[in-house]
Amino acid sequence: MFKILKYSFFDLVRSRWSYVYFLFYLLLAATLLFLNNDLSKAVITLMNVIIILVPLIGTIFGVMYFYNSKEFTELLLAQPIKRSSIFIGLYLGVAVSLSMSLLLGIGVPFLLYGLTQSAAIWDFSLLLITGVFLTFIFTGIAFNISLSNENKIKGFGYAIMMWLFLAVIYDGLFLMSLVFFEDYPLDKLSLIGTMLNPIDLSRTLILLKLDISALLGYTGAVFKTFFGTNQGLIISISVLFLWVLFPAIRMVRKSNKKDF
């Protein structure tokens, strides 16, 4: 598995796309800092970008890489290697290299700007953690989609749809259902609704840092224990772990059964 991971990782690190991705984040973070002159404000703006873009890039990259390395995968399958280690290796290779581009691209300008002396360091590290989580989750989902679809175009279509759904449409439906059922106690429902979408979940994690004073304005015991104590942070991070785990498990299962 590690050999395959190493191979796919170095393959990607050498590829042009990783650099494009890295340079994009470098440029974004540098411009934000240049324009804002305020670390915490830059962190907030960056959060909006990361929550939407990281899943998109993870998805597209995952699907693209899977379809592109199909021949290589088939070659590997002919060898006496466990299927699970082939796919997990490829998956980790993509996810790790994407996370690296993200961490370096955003981390370097912020470090140069004097992050370590700033109070925003915790918000910033939380931002990076959620970014890495989102990369892993969406690469995993992308691998699942492309495993299930032989047709490239269909696979791409589904992947983009999935991203659009989770990033925008889900929140719309969520909001509508909350407003529709406003006569009922909704605090549990709204928290569960958040858990079911990794993008919402990462957003909540960051809200916990940035908007905690507003979140505490709502009178609900469930809300209060969730947002008012460390419980919210712990639960959110563990659910994010689950979100990483499930696509990976399904990928292994699917790949074991699949007829190549």
């Binding site: 925008v168 406003e182 605090d187 709204s190 957003r203 809200l207 908007d211 507003a214 709502y218």
Partner: peptide, 9 residues
């Protein structure tokens, strides 16, 4: 309760 959707796209 919709406050959980703050800062969503």
């Amino acid at each position: 309760e919709t406050i959980v959707l703050m800062r969503s796209l």
